[in-house]
Nucleic acid binder design. Structure first.
Length: 397
RNA sequence: GGGGAGAUACCUAAGUGGCCAACAGGGAUGGACUGUAAAUCCAUUGGCUCAGCCUUCAGAGGUUCGAAUCCUCUUCUCCCCA
C-alpha cells in the first residue's frame, strides 16, 4: 500500500487531493520532506484516543520520511476554544497551559517519534506572543465577518441565541496564521476542524505561499456512541493505565467497533471484517488488546485482558487494590467510606449502601448505621463500592 | 445609546408568596439481566452528627410570620431599534 492509499483510510476529507499526489511524488523525487502540521490546544491535562486519530496519520507521514510539525496552541489555549460544545472553554493561566503542554507531549510521544531530527515541535506563543494589538488588527483584516459566520458552530449558536464572543472569531485566524508561520505543506485535523484548516490555506495564499493540503480525519466516537469528549466522560485517555484502557474499550458499544478498528488500529481490513463476523465479545477483546498493546506493550495488554476476565467474569477481586490507612476508631460505615476516599460525601455513601452497591469484606451491607470497629491498630477491612471501586483500609495508631 | 426578554440542581426545563431540596426529561450512579454491548426493569441523583437538621433557585440588600416566587440595586446573556 502506498502512502496515498493509507492516507485515504484515515481521511474523511482531503482538500487538494491531486495537489497532494504531486507533492508526494516530487517530495520523494527531490528528497525534500513535506512539512505536515498538526495543532493541538493544551486545554486539558490529557490527550485521548480521539486526538490520536490525526496523530496516527501524522506518524504515517513520519514513517514515510516526512516531517511532522506539531503545534502546541499555548496561545490559543489561553483564549478558550469554541469547539462546538456550546459552552466556551475557560481561559487558562500560562502555568496551567504549560503544565498541560508537558503532559500532552509526553502522551503524544507514545505514538509519534518526537526526536527533534524527525519532528518539529512549536508553540504558537512564539509568534503570537510578540504581536501587538495593531498586528492583531492586521491579521483580523484578512478575513471578513461573513466568512467567519460560515462556520457551522457559530451559525448554530446564533440560531440558539447563545453568545458568540468576538475573540472566538479570531481563533480560526490564529490557526490559519500558524500555517503561514510554519510554512505547512499539509495540515491534519479532526472532521470538525475543516473550517479552520481552510483558513490556513486561504491565509497562506494571501502571503503568496503554496496553500496547504488539508486532510481531516473522521471523529472517533466515545465509548457510548456520542462524540468522544471529556465533558461526556466517554473518552479513553492515552495516559490511562493498561487495565483501565482495556476495560473502557470493552464497554464500547458494538456499533462503534468497526470505526474503532479502522481509526484506532492498523489491523488490515480483511482481518477486521473477519473479526466483526464473529462474536462481538471476542472482536472487542482483540480491539482492546490491540490498542492497549500499542501504548503499553503486548505483555501489559495480555495481562489487562486476563485481569478483566478475572474481575468481571469470575468476579474475583482485582489483583491490585489501593491501600488506605486511617486512624484507629469506630467508624460509621458512611463515614468510613468517605474517609477512605471511596465516595465524596456520606450522603452519597448512604445512597450506595441503600441501593445494595456496597460490600464490606465481600459481603453486601445494606445497613446504613453499621459501625466498623477499627480500634485495634493493624486491623483491616476491604471496602467495595459498585463494581470497580475497591479500597483496603488499614487502621494505624 | 434606547426598548424588550431572560439567568433555577451536571444539562434541558417546570415552578410566579407557604403543600419546594424544588415537576418532567436527559445524563450519571447503584441494583436485576448480560458479553462492563444494546434493549428492558427498579432505585438513587445538595450536605450532615440522617425518622431530624442545615445550605441552595445569577450576586447583594429589602418587604413579609413566611420568598426560587414581590421590591431595589449589581453582574451576565439574548432579541429589536440606533
Amino acid at each position: 500500500m502506498n502512502l496515498m492509499e493509507e492516507i485515504q483510510r484515515y481521511a474523511s476529507d482531503i482538500v487538494g487531493a491531486e495537489q497532494l499526489q504531486k507533492m508526494l511524488a516530487s517530495a520523494s523525487a527531490e528528497k525534500a520532506p513535506l512539512r505536515v502540521k498538526f495543532g493541538i490546544d493544551p486545554t486539558f491535562t490529557d490527550v485521548h484516543l480521539g486526538h490520536a486519530v490525526p496523530i496516527r496519520l501524522l506518524r504515517l507521514f513520519q514513517e514515510h520520511g516526512h516531517l511532522p510539525v506539531l503545534i502546541l496552541g499555548d496561545g490559543t489555549a489561553r483564549l478558550g476554544d469554541p469547539t462546538g460544545r456550546n459552552q466556551q472553554r475557560p481561559p487558562l493561566s500560562q502555568e496551567e497551559v504549560e503544565a498541560n503542554a508537558t503532559t500532552y507531549l509526553q502522551q503524544i510521544g507514545q505514538l509519534l517519534d518526537l526526536d527533534p531530527a524527525r519532528c518539529e515541535v512549536r508553540r504558537n506563543s512564539e509568534w503570537f506572543g510578540r504581536m501587538d494589538f495593531f498586528d492583531c488588527l492586521q491579521l483580523a483584516a484578512r478575513s471578513t465577518v461573513a466568512r467567519m459566520l460560515e462556520r457551522d458552530d457559530f451559525q448554530k449558536r446564533m440560531r440558539e441565541n447563545l453568545p458568540v464572543h468576538l475573540h472566538e472569531m479570531l481563533y480560526p485566524l490564529m490557526q490559519g496564521y500558524d500555517s503561514v508561520m510554519v510554512r505547512a505543506d499539509v495540515e491534519l485535523g479532526g472532521n470538525d476542524q475543516l473550517f479552520n484548516l481552510h483558513m490556513g490555506r486561504q491565509m497562506q495564499e494571501r502571503e503568496g505561499m503554496r496553500p496547504q493540503v488539508c486532510i481531516t480525519t473522521p471523529l472517533l466516537l466515545g465509548t457510548d456512541g456520542r462524540k468522544m469528549s471529556k465533558s461526556y466522560g466517554n473518552h479513553v485517555g492515552l495516559n490511562a493505565a493498561a487495565h483501565d484502557m482495556y476495560g473502557k474499550i470493552m464497554s464500547l458499544s458494538d456499533e462503534g467497533m468497526e470505526s474503532w478498528f479502522a481509526l484506532a488500529t492498523r489491523l488490515p481490513e480483511e482481518r477486521v471484517q473477519e473479526l466483526l463476523a464473529g462474536h462481538p465479545r471476542q472482536a472487542k477483546d482483540i480491539l482492546a488488546q490491540t490498542i492497549v498493546a500499542e501504548i503499553h506493550g503486548e505483555t501489559a495488554a495480555k495481562e489487562a485482558a486476563e485481569e478483566f476476565v478475572r474481575r468481571f467474569q469470575k468476579k474475583d477481586l482485582p489483583s491490585e487494590i489501593p491501600q488506605q490507612t486511617l486512624p484507629c476508631a469506630r467508624y460509621a460505615l458512611p463515614n468510613l467510606m468517605k474517609d477512605a476516599g471511596l465516595v465524596s460525601s456520606t450522603s452519597d455513601a448512604r445512597r450506595l449502601i441503600q441501593g445494595g452497591g456496597v460490600r464490606l469484606n465481600q459481603e453486601v451491607v445494606k445497613d446504613v448505621r453499621l459501625e466498623v470497629d477499627l480500634t485495634t491498630s493493624g486491623s483491616e477491612v476491604l471496602l467495595q463500592a459498585g463494581k470497580r471501586r475497591f479500597v483496603q483500609v488499614r487502621a494505624v495508631d
